[in-house]
Design a binder for these strands. Structure first.
Lengths: 232, 232
DNA sequence: TGCCGTGATCTGTGATCACAGTTAGGGTGG
DNA sequence: CCACCCTAACTGTGATCACAGATCACGGCA
């Protein structure tokens, strides 16, 4: 191992496969709600758009189907699953239990750098939502950043992975709705809950952190359920 | 809709794809611990065994990789992930939180038929483990049946799906160990905890149900950790 | 005018081929 | 006798082809 010192600086250059990149692309579309529930997705069409053959798309889609973020109907069509109100309530209950647990763990195990990233994520979203004309896609992205900054602070990779899968399912419903209804953002509930969560985690108050996340999640869910746009 | 009456009897005949069957087969191998951590898996070899081309195997493997039940190394080899003691502790904590929550929900929402299937699953496993020479693979299967009978009683499909993914990760470690150490089964801890859980759920005591599942999971985990066979 | 058969065109699924990269093993040079 | 190299046999990834089944629109029959 007699290498030039300069070589120590090179990073292993991530050899991402096309399948992974296709997965990341599709997952982002789902989480940010740009793919609506019920919308169909053709493998060949997606492959055309991504500029690859259908093979990488097939791998990405089969992963998302395994996560139930997509489904293939008995008639051989891939689409974003339609969610009934009952399913959405179930999903919301599970999210409250698991994301609340993660927030509680974060309050107990957060490091100082966790607090910094949580605070800056909160600040960024607050700033965006207080603008006269907030950029909704950006607000959605910042909301995600804040939540995952919290969950990362629990220092449990497995928990974070589970929550990511939950967001894959919830994204199409929640964020599609948020795009259509900017007034919920303007109302400022989320901003308030986020502040509560940040303070609770900083104070090491796990119960309050759990309550804050639960309020944030159920607030958004109640709003969507009250509009009654979900499938029967 | 003027159909011959006889047609009302036909069932939609499950059109399972080869990929799904391959997935089910591999998932079963993992959950029951017949694939050991670190063991390599060749797509072509697996395809040969299953009597299909590598395509269905590819789909199955890519799903399992997405669930982190398998991993593909930077050197392009598919294998069962090696788990460090720290990762195993994290997994165990998450399992206690989530499976405990599911058991608590089961205590609150179980129907009478849930109680029946839980009781019969408990009885079956108890009978097997009290035999002079228990059939270990069968005991592993019965243990799984009991746990999922409990989780199904929570009536939350999403929760059950998450737990299934957790078992996919834990299976290779836990059940491989159980095969190698039948004495843990003979000791009868699991049997006792299962009885506690069943009674708690029947009584609607969610706290006790949670404690029972937690004791069952951490009992097995402590045993494995104490043997120190995990990767650094 | 309303309905049903029919064919072109789309769907996902599976098999096969091509390729770059890795690994293991046998042989050769020191 | 040990170390090295080189080749042959693998690895997963990606593209392409083949196929059964589903969809949809058009045209003919009632």
């Amino acid at each position: 191992m007699n290498l030039p010192a300069a070589l120590n600086l090179v990073e292993p250059l991530d050899r991402q496969t096309l399948g992974e990149r296709a997965y990341a692309k599709l997952a982002d579309l789902l989480i940010s709600g740009r793919l609506a529930p019920g919308e169909k997705l053709s493998l060949r069409a997606a492959a055309d758009v991504l500029g690859v053959s259908i093979m990488p798309v097939r791998e990405a889609v089969s992963r998302l189907v395994a996560d139930k973020a997509l489904e293939v109907t008995p008639n051989r069509a891939v689409r974003v699953p339609l969610m009934s109100a009952a399913q959405f309530r179930d999903l919301t209950k599970v999210r409250i239990a698991i994301e609340g647990h993660a927030a509680a763990q974060a309050a107990l195990h957060r490091s100082n750098s966790d607090l910094v990233s949580i605070a800056s994520a909160e600040e960024a979203m607050k700033a965006e939502s207080l603008l006269p004309a907030p950029d909704l896609p950006r607000a959605v992205e910042l909301n995600k950043t804040f939540h995952f900054a919290v969950y990362e602070a629990a220092h449990s990779p497995i928990l974070v992975e589970i929550i990511r899968a939950l967001w894959l399912k919830a994204g199409p419903v929640i964020n599609l709705d948020l795009r259509a209804n900017p007034e919920r953002l303007a109302k400022g509930d989320a901003i308030r809950f986020h502040a509560d969560v940040r303070q609770a985690i900083a104070a090491g108050n796990s119960g309050a952190a759990l309550d804050g996340i639960a309020a944030d999640i159920s607030g958004a869910a109640d709003f969507i359920l009250s509009r009654g746009g979900l499938a029967g």
